[in-house]
Design a protein around this nucleic acid. Sequence first.
DNA 1: GTTATATATTATACTGGTATTATATATAAC
DNA 2: GTTATATATAATACCAGTATAATATATAAC
Lengths: 185, 185
Amino acid sequence: MSLPYGLLGLLSYQASTGYDLAKIFEDSLNNFWHAQSAQIYRELDRMEQKGWVASRNIVQSKRPNKRLYSITDDGRGALHQWLSESAPGFERPHEPLLMRVFFGGDVPEVTLALLKACRSMCLDAAAEYPKRIQANIDHYAAVIPGGEKNSLYWQMTLEFGIMHTQATAKWAQACIEKLEKELRP
Amino acid sequence: MSLPYGLLGLLSYQASTGYDLAKIFEDSLNNFWHAQSAQIYRELDRMEQKGWVASRNIVQSKRPNKRLYSITDDGRGALHQWLSESAPGFERPHEPLLMRVFFGGDVPEVTLALLKACRSMCLDAAAEYPKRIQANIDHYAAVIPGGEKNSLYWQMTLEFGIMHTQATAKWAQACIEKLEKELRP
DNA sequence: GTTATATATTATACTGGTATTATATATAAC
DNA sequence: GTTATATATAATACCAGTATAATATATAAC
């Protein structure tokens, strides 16, 4: 239920193609939301049918033609309403990794390896994406109208990602130590 | 892709009905995985078609009849294979809360309220579910064959939940302070 | 020269998660 | 007495997320 509003939000900054939106998702929202481009195109279709966005075709000679989407007044209304809803919409957890750990007792060595992979991925991510995403935040803060004001909020989502990546790495480390004590005392 | 294996894992402990499984999910896996009962019944159907589980009908007079599912040898094989796969299966993030925060710049007061609700829910959860889930872990550790050995792994998933709940509360707190400084300097 | 990457969408199909309703009865709480 | 809770499924439908492939061309990297 959040994807269409995410797209509306981005379109409220500037008119974009599906391709643009997919890239912005990867650059900036990837931290807390993943969307495939196929999903984005499908969603844009639906939103156009609802009248939340309007599109016009742009003919290009050297590139495939593209379809530029703009937010409509109805779309802005829908976005604003969603933002103002009191229903917070907390997520139901779905963590495949933890499902493996929960039932890991029969394959302790595999579970240990899994936890090590988890730790190393988190450490890599913690070292890499803050810089990349911070750079994107700074870029959009300068480029998009009202970007300066919004960047504080973008920043908060980045900090969430950093905090959780670090917490996961720390958790994995503690699990690894426990398991190693069990397996090779 | 994890739900069927979660069900297989629970059935590897003991034969159960869909109803039982739904309750165990709520009691013990809720921490990292949410599943509706409708989903569980559907999945059990599919698993029976694949030959991973077998069911028999149990006629009851004072309660509705029930269907007791047991894991088959094929099912144990599938579970073990899934547990041994090297592909770790890390999740793609989907955090509705963060989508709201990202676009929260136009409604700062609403966003502040949202963050406060988040903080208070996390603090409540951190105070409540560790005790409840710990009690369930201890119970199943005593009741289920091999429970003692597995409870270490169950414990790790609980600690993940605690750590993340606390991290989220801390993050929300930091965001609230920043926003309040902005809004009422 | 070949390969990879970037641009820009469309199509199809499946799986997974959510929402809601219906049925039937026993017991405990108010 | 009525309501809520627990037991125990079944049915239906929709929306969301994933996977994969097709199409077409320019440019940069090797």
